[in-house]
Structures are given as structure tokens and as C-alpha cells.
Simulated scan of single mutants.
Amino acid sequence: MRRRQFMTLLGGAAALPLAAHAQQPTKKIPKIGVLWHAASAEEEKEYLEILTKAFSDLGYVEGKNVEFLHRFPAEQADRFRALAKELVESKVDIAVGVTAKCAIELKQATSTIPIVFVIVPDPVRYGLVESLAHPGGNATGLSLMSVDLSGKRLGLLREAVPSLSRVALLADPKDPIAPGFFSASLNAGKALGLFVRSVEVPTPDAVEPAFSTIAQDGFDGAVVIGSMMFNERARVGASALAHRMPTLTTVGEMVQYGLLMSYGQDFPDYFRKAAGYVDKILKGAKPADLPVEQPTHFKQIVNLKAAKSLGLTIPPSLLVTADEVIE
């Protein structure tokens, strides 16, 4: 064989692997849609940072091997619906619904795209799953026991405020969790010999007037719950202190803003576990086969700074059982 012919053949052979490589399709990176409840990333900062880190710890890097589509409906019913539909039309590979409202709208928008819910009190009652052990559809995630802890919370508040006799329950009536919260707390209060009344707080601007009203009506304690109250945590805390109202919440991340204490699920851990569900599903698991996880640990936080402002002395028994004490 002549040298020129040999070199031509050799050059063609060398080019084959390059050509084959060039023709290989680019690997599709998964799209993860996240439907929050507040109006912006800033309002969701605490949990958004935790969720982002949880995915990072699992090896997911934005723009490299995953694409995140975060949506913020600002607690507006029509926005929840529209943004859920938008995520489905964006053909996300999986959707995360942070609250019950989010999960319900996502479930109504799709029966095929996998859904992981994070903060849902009763996923069976909301029709998200067939049962906790066997979800059976396209959704799974984590379940709360917020309503079931109503008696425990009222008991803790009375331990912190020995003279407690009248308790106001503050929540947005549009929140799916509100009816069950009101009902269970009223029954628990009756069993504890406390007068308990529900107070609807339908908008952020209604937060301060609600605290003003219950203070004028002689209430000596309050319990707040729901996603809108979390969004307005700074306003809730400031109002509680301004009207000298010892206030308990279900969400630990609210306490530092001026609330007296919290008792409830470890929500940061919930977001980390939600990322784990997403990871399993992206790797081939089916939501129908992944049991809904229920809480095994409840976090108690006591704010001594708020107690001092309210003129309260927190008993040692509460400090001993607290997971965290804010000095």
C-alpha cells in the first residue's frame, strides 16, 4: 500500500471515535419544580437554603446536572393553581409541593408527574394518597401531626403561663389546616379547663389588629398556625410583644422573632427528607411504592428573651425538655 493511501485510511479511522462522540445525544438533566407558598425567595429564605443544601449534599448542582424551577404564589389561591399548571406545562420531571395548598393544586394539575409534598397534615384526607403505607398514585412525601398535638401545645403554654385561662387561636381561615386546628384545639382546651376561641386572620394586615383585639378582650395567651402566619413571622412576633401576649407556634423558625415558644415538627429536617424522596424517584423509585413518612421527633424551642419582655419566669421543667433555648 502506498504511504499516501495508508495515511488517508489511518486519518479516517482516527476520526471515527470523534464522529461517534459528536453524534451522541446530550444527556438530559432533570427539571425539578418547587411550588412554595410565600411571595418570594426572600420570604422562603430559611427553608429554601436548607432545601438547596440538601440537594447539593446529594450531588445535585444547579445548571450542571439539575434545573430548578421555583414558583412563589404569595398565598393567593388563583396563583397556586396557575403556577401548578405552569410547572406541569414546563414538563418538570418531578414537582415538590411545600404545603397542603401546593400539593393539592399539583395533584389536580397532573396524575402522571411525580409529586413530593413536604408540610401536609393529612395527605389521605386531602386525597393525595390512598394510604400512608401505600400511597398508590403519583404523590408521596411527609405527613404532619399538627392537629393531633393541640392538647400538648396548650399544656405547654399553660406550664409557661401558670395563670393562663383564655387562649386565642390565630390562623388564616383559607389555610386547609385551619378547620382541623380550630376544632381539635377547642376540644383540647375544654379538657384542660381553658376557654379557647378561634380568631380568623385572613390577611397580613389583619395580624396586628387581631393581637390588639384579643389583648383588649382579656386573653392571656395565643397559639398561631399556618403558612401565612409563618410568612408574617416578623409582624406576628412584634405584635405579640407589643400587646404583651405570650404566644406559642408550631414552627420553630418563628420563635426568634418574638414568640414565647414552639412545639412541633423539625421542619428543616422535613425539607432535607423531601430532597431524599426526590432523589429516590429520579433514580427510578415510584411514588406509589414510597410510604409517607410520619414524624418521630418533635422540637421544642423556648425564647427566654421574649419571656423576660413579657415578665414571665419560665419553669426549669420547660427548659430541661427544650431542644433549644434562645437567651
Rank of each mutant, 00 (worst) to 15 (best):
T313H: 08
V251H: 01
P287C: 15
V201T: 03
Q108V: 10
E67S: 14
P316D: 15
D289G: 05
A82R: 11
E159Y: 06
N138L: 02
L149I: 09
A160V: 02
P315K: 00
V66S: 12
S198P: 13
L304K: 09
S212K: 14
W36C: 00
M229G: 01
T250D: 05
E89R: 13
F267H: 12
A242S: 13
S143R: 08
M229C: 13
G155L: 01
R125E: 11
A20W: 14
F219A: 01
K273Y: 01
P291W: 07
K107R: 14
P246F: 05
D122P: 03
R233H: 04
D93T: 10
E105S: 08
L149K: 11
Y126A: 03
V116E: 07
R81G: 10
P121F: 06
G193R: 07
S143A: 14
I119V: 05
E75Y: 04
F6K: 03
V224F: 10
A82V: 13
L154N: 02
E75R: 04
E46C: 06
V129E: 08
S239V: 00
D266L: 15
T203W: 03
V196K: 02
S163D: 10
G141P: 05
M245K: 06
G127D: 08
P287I: 09
L51I: 00
T99M: 06
L312K: 01
A103L: 07
D323F: 12
L87I: 08
G264C: 12
E324Y: 08
C102G: 12
A100G: 11
I115Y: 09
I32D: 00
A168Q: 03
A274K: 01
G11T: 05
D217C: 07
H70C: 08
F117D: 07
G252Y: 01
L194Q: 04
F230R: 05
F195N: 01
S185C: 11
L319A: 12
Q265C: 01
K45S: 15
K45L: 13
A103K: 04
I314M: 11
L310E: 06
D289W: 08
A288C: 10
S40Q: 12
D175Y: 04
F117K: 02
A41I: 13
S146N: 11
K273E: 07
E62W: 05
L157V: 08
Q5F: 03
L290T: 04
H70E: 11
V66N: 10
A210V: 08
T203I: 01
L142C: 02
Q24W: 04
A22G: 09
S212N: 14
L194F: 08
T110H: 09
A171T: 11
K53N: 08
R166G: 00
E208M: 04
F181T: 02
M145I: 08
D205K: 15
